[in-house]
Design a protein around this nucleic acid. Structure first.
Lengths: 109, 109
DNA sequence: TCTACAGTTCGAAAAATATCGAATTGTTAA
DNA sequence: TTAACAATTCGATATTTTTCGAACTGTAGA
């Protein structure tokens, strides 16, 4: 298992991060992780996409520096890089959390 | 002159906003406006793109709800929708300002 | 009215991205 | 060792985005 590249906090680019968040599936994954910690691929509540497509989106999020993998057996658990993101882009994670709450509220009202 | 559509603060989508910011030219324009108020097309410090391409990027920023035009004579002045953005996505404009400062610092050191 | 100017729109081409199924890697359990 | 499973990678295709030049719109001044 070769460990994938995870950029350091200082190397993150806001443009690259925004591009990664600028896709509905990836935004969903990130908000999911922001609100409820660690999940593996089957835990993301995304619908009707193949596993190869999901893997592609995960790679983009990882390379942008938004998420971090943890390997346990045959599962890959992903989590948001909250501390690094708070350091490099203060307010971003809060924004994602707020947005996630808002999405729930707007739909349920 | 037909007035272009400007979405209300409540209608802004974080995904759409991030997609708009996920392009280096558009990120540059937005940071430029965040740091120094109103500008027309010739005021954005972007290099080597045709005016039709610039116009295209401006349209995406406008439709995402990030910028607002003001028409004066033959010039179109654009500004960041700071108040609305602070209402809908608290922390976003600060992040853009911080990033703009950081870019200057990193380059000049 | 004519011309110049600022900017947008149109249409086409190029480049990038998203998507999928099949093949592959690595892990665990039978 | 074999099979099942989780996930990634590969190769191809479809879709979207970026980009440009040309044509167009609206404004101001000669």
């Amino acid at each position: 298992m070769k460990t994938p590249h995870i950029p350091a906090a200082a190397d993150l680019s806001l443009t690259v991060v925004c591009a990664a968040l600028g896709d509905p599936i990836r935004m969903k994954i990130v908000q999911c992780l922001a609100s409820s910690g660690e999940k593996n691929c089957s835990g993301f509540e995304v619908d009707h996409i193949s596993k190869s497509t999901l893997s592609h989106h995960i790679k983009i999020l990882r390379e942008a520096g938004l998420i971090r993998p943890r390997f346990q057996g045959k599962e890959h658990f992903y989590s948001l890089r909250t501390e690094e993101l708070n350091l490099r882009f203060p307010g971003l994670v809060d924004m994602l959390l707020t947005e996630n709450e808002r999405a729930k509220t707007v739909l349920s009202v």
